[in-house]
Structures are given as structure tokens and as C-alpha cells.
């Protein structure tokens, strides 16, 4: 798998989000100087402690929220509002309870292709309902479905509009481990088939390792940053049951856990330095030596420099 060095599919430059202080004091930047790029077909997972601003970043990427500073470019064009190019899978599934499964998906399909005939919309919607294994349940209302089934409808709905990019905010957070495993496997399969570009927030380290090509680690807020980017070099296709036998599995996992436990806090000391890194350091387990958390010497403001090395 090689990544083209030409302009990336999604480019985030110096993004910041400032909320006015509730006590009337100085406004606080939840995060600032957030820079990263996503290439076509990449599966990116983001993790970090609660409140560091992951959902806010995702909502900005979706166009549902606006940044206080910085820019987001997708396919060379600036993101200024929600778009059918970016499908969102909401944590709360956000299905419309008065519509059946089929109608929920068809609503999205009709929004994407308003001129399609009823039959064509239906067939298209059914394809994606089948893809997530919900054939036979298409006439049920969301209230008649289990949590996992609802989340799958959300996935079908987001995939059905064939977006250029998929944004997911802890999509499986509310599910039990078993259901979560089943849906993760499904997602893995669908993404392999469709070469979908994905940006996904998760608190689950194992989920990130199973699904992602890269894992972005956010430091704690306020003034949170993307502190590190971990290249997930585990070969695909991945099997949940065999993945821990891969030589890179434990180095990656230990690195992630270590970050969440200790380094996410230490990063705070670094950020106040005048030459604080605005681009994250890159960890690549195929080096099998941790790259020192030194300042990346290359560009002063901007883009993390990432090499994907085949394991």
C-alpha cells in the first residue's frame, strides 16, 4: 500500500476551537494548532481523553460546527458546511423513529439522488441494508431493533449515499463487547470492499488497532493537540482472533496505552514552549525504536510528515 505524495484528500490546517469562558474570564481554546492529513482510502482512528475535543473536530469536519481558526480542505475545496460528500455515523445512531429501517435508509438515498425512481431508491437502500445483515428487518421501526441493529442501520444509511469520506463518533461506544465485535468485523469487510476513507473516534485501543491504518493521539485539553500519529503496520486482512500474534501488535498497543496513561498529560508542558510542535511526532513500529518525542525538524507550521513503511 503506497500513499501518493500529491495533495492529500483531507487536509486540516491549524484548526482551533475557542469557547467563551463560563465565568466570564479569558476564553479557552479547547484545542489549537491541530494539523493532520488523511489520504484517500485511509482508515484513521482518533483517541484521547474525554473532553479533549475529538467530537468537536469531527463536527467541524462534518461541517456541523465551525472552527474558531484554521481551515479544513477536502479534495482541494474548503469545507464550509455539511455535505453529502461526508457521511456521518452518529454515536446515538440518530435514526428517525417514525420511519422504518428501509425508509430511514431510503430517505438518505433520495437526498443524494433526488431524481431516482422509487424502485431504484428502494433497491439501492436494500443493497446496503443487506450489506449490514439486516435483510428481513427492513420494515421494522427503530424502536423494535436492538442497539446493535440500530447502529447497523446508521452504518447502512451513511454508506448508502456513497460519501467520499465517513465520519464516525464512537459509533460502537454504547454496544456490548460481543455485538461490537460483530459490527467491527462487518465494518472491516465493508471498508475493504469499498475502499472507504474513514475518520473514526474511539476510546477502545483494540478497536483502533483492528480497524485503522493510522491512529491519531490527542493530548489533554485545554490547548489540546494531535500529539502523535501511530502508523498501524499490521497487515490486512486482519483477523480479530489472530491479530495479537502479529509482531507489531504489542509494540503498537503498548505505545497507545502508554500515551493514554502518561504522555497525554506530559504533552501539556511542551505546548507552552514558544517553539512548541504544531505537527505531531510519528510513531512507526516497523522502526521498532520509538521515535523520540523531539520536535519534527521539517515544516514549522503544518503538516505532519508521515511515511508508511510496509511491515
Amino acid at each position: 500500500m503506497t500513499t501518493p505524495v500529491t495533495h492529500p484528500f483531507l487536509q486540516v490546517e491549524d484548526l482551533a476551537r475557542i469557547y467563551p469562558s463560563p465565568t466570564g474570564g479569558d476564553a479557552v481554546a479547547v484545542f489549537d494548532h491541530v494539523n493532520f492529513r488523511i489520504h484517500k482510502g485511509e482508515f484513521i482512528c482518533v483517541t484521547g481523553h474525554s473532553g479533549c475535543g475529538k467530537s468537536t473536530i469531527l463536527n467541524i469536519l462534518a461541517g456541523l460546527d465551525t472552527a474558531s481558526a484554521g481551515n479544513v480542505f477536502m479534495d482541494g475545496r474548503e469545507v464550509s458546511g455539511p455535505s453529502l460528500d461526508r457521511g456521518v455515523i452518529f454515536q446515538s445512531h440518530a435514526l428517525m423513529p417514525w420511519l422504518s429501517v428501509l425508509e430511514n435508509v431510503a430517505f438518505a438515498v433520495k437526498s443524494r439522488w433526488p431524481s431516482w425512481s422509487k424502485q431504484k431508491i428502494r433497491d439501492h437502500a436494500m443493497r446496503y441494508i443487506e450489506l449490514v445483515g439486516l435483510k428481513g428487518a427492513e420494515h421494522k421501526k427503530p424502536s423494535q431493533l436492538s442497539g446493535g441493529m440500530k447502529q447497523r442501520v446508521g452504518i447502512a444509511r451513511a454508506f448508502s449515499i456513497e460519501p467520499k469520506m465517513l465520519l464516525m463518533d464512537e459509533p460502537f461506544g454504547a454496544l456490548d463487547a460481543l455485538t461490537r465485535g460483530v459490527i467491527q468485523d462487518e465494518l472491516l469487510k465493508i471498508c475493504a470492499e469499498t475502499q472507504q476513507t474513514v475518520f473514526m473516534i474511539t476510546h477502545d485501543v483494540d478497536e483502533a488497532i483492528l480497524l485503522s491504518d493510522k491512529i491519531m493521539l490527542m493530548s489533554n485539553g485545554p490547548h489540546a493537540r494531535i500529539a502523535e500519529i501511530v502508523n498501524n503496520t499490521l497487515p490486512r486482512p486482519r483477523e480479530r482472533s489472530a491479530i495479537h500474534k502479529q509482531p507489531h501488535y504489542y509494540p503498537i498497543r503498548n505505545h497507545l496505552v502508554d500515551f493514554l496513561v502518561s504522555r497525554s498529560k506530559q504533552f501539556g508542558a511542551l505546548r507552552d514552549a514558544p517553539d512548541a510542535p504544531s505537527s505531531p511526532t510519528v510513531f512507526d513500529p516497523s522502526d521498532l525504536v520509538e521515535s523520540e518525542p523531539a520536535v519534527a525538524p521539517v515544516p514549522p507550521v503544518g503538516k505532519p510528515h508521515i511515511h508508511l513503511v510496509n511491515a
Partner: peptide, 14 residues
């Protein structure tokens, strides 16, 4: 109306 549903329709450019 639940924000989620409005957000869904916004992302679908309804």
C-alpha cells in the same frame, strides 16, 4: 426536535 435528526438532515443536504 432532536438535534440529531436536524444534524442528519443537514449532513444529507435536505
Amino acid at each position: 426536535v432532536r438535534r440529531d435528526w436536524l444534524d442528519v438532515s443537514r449532513t444529507l443536504e435536505v
